[in-house]
Amino acid sequence: MKILGLIVTMVTGALLMYGTADMPDWGDPNSPANSRISPRYIEKTEIETATPNIVTSILADYRGYDTLGETTVIFTAGVSCILLLRRRRKG
């Protein structure tokens, strides 16, 4: 099991490393991730959401639905713990 795990880990890691070869350099302001969609958030946040903190404006407004999903995840985990751990009171 240990050997097999090590082999699987190595292969996965090597594959991920192989992928990094074609990635844009770290910290490049012109990389696709930094120049394609995100500039609009920075430019328009004040006009569209009146919030100086851009992370907040995306979290609660542009992608607010993800945040609803996030709170749902927490609720699911909480109810799951109650479902699993609650024991009937012995009376």
Partner: peptide, 8 residues
């Protein structure tokens, strides 16, 4: 990995 090369 998709995000880093497409930004979307």
């Amino acid at each position: 990995y998709l995000y880093i090369v497409t930004g979307s």
